[in-house]
Amino acid sequence: MPEFLLDGRSVPFEPGQTVMEAAIAAGIYIPHLCWHPAFEPHGSCKLCTVDIDGRPASACTRPAEAGMQVTSGSEALRRLRLRLTQMLFVEGNHFCPSCEKSGDCELQAMGYYLGMTDNHYPHFYPRRELDASHPDILLDRDRCIFCELCVRASRKEGKSVFALAGRGPQTRLVINSPSGRLGDSELDAGDEAAGICPVGAIVRRNTAYRVPIGQRRYDLAGIDEESLARERPLLGRADGPTED
């Protein structure tokens, strides 16, 4: 098997695998929010930025090559990822203490993992529309980080309920239904798209406090450990790029 070097460790890979896939397979965590082993890589959150042979690259989209020298665990990259995480916090309205996703939220867990103690940047306090029209699912756009996991999951399920509209800082999640509201869409609470949101933007209703604070996903393990345990078995499930 060909290999590349990741923070000094030899990582074997199968041709066609990305740096991210090979790293996860080898039990090495590279921070990420928009990547998920079951979907084609997206490359938008940039948390997985690594240094490959002296140049920055996204680990989730870069195909692995034999002999690459990859750095992921440096202090400079931790700082970069911290700033990116802080950017995601300030551009939306993420108030962990009042959010039902707290403890299960990947953005929050990423903040802890990277040693985030403040927001660093000023808050944008955007005004985004909340959609409570669906009986079983709530869409709180204030918490959306534009990872498009719901877009990809719903497309894979053949429903294509979600899409992004707008541009730049005005980007927003929109719903495929006659009224543009979630309640009139085909989304069911059982859909993978309804449960894939890494943050608290799309949440299943009536499930918020079934697991008490203190016993939630990231109360029990850090995001690095949890991510490897959950995502490693799913490797290889991703399809090729799907048409949107």
Binding site: G43, S44, C45, K46, L47, L84, M87, L88, V90, E91, Y121, P122, F124, I145, F146, L164, G166, R167, G168, P169, Q170, T171
Partner: peptide, 17 residues
């Protein structure tokens, strides 16, 4: 900031900041 496509975090938020 006006022309950023909004796809990636550093440009979408960075240009606005």
């Amino acid at each position: 900031a006006h022309e950023s496509c909004g796809f990636c975090t550093p440009c979408r938020v960075g240009t606005a900041l």
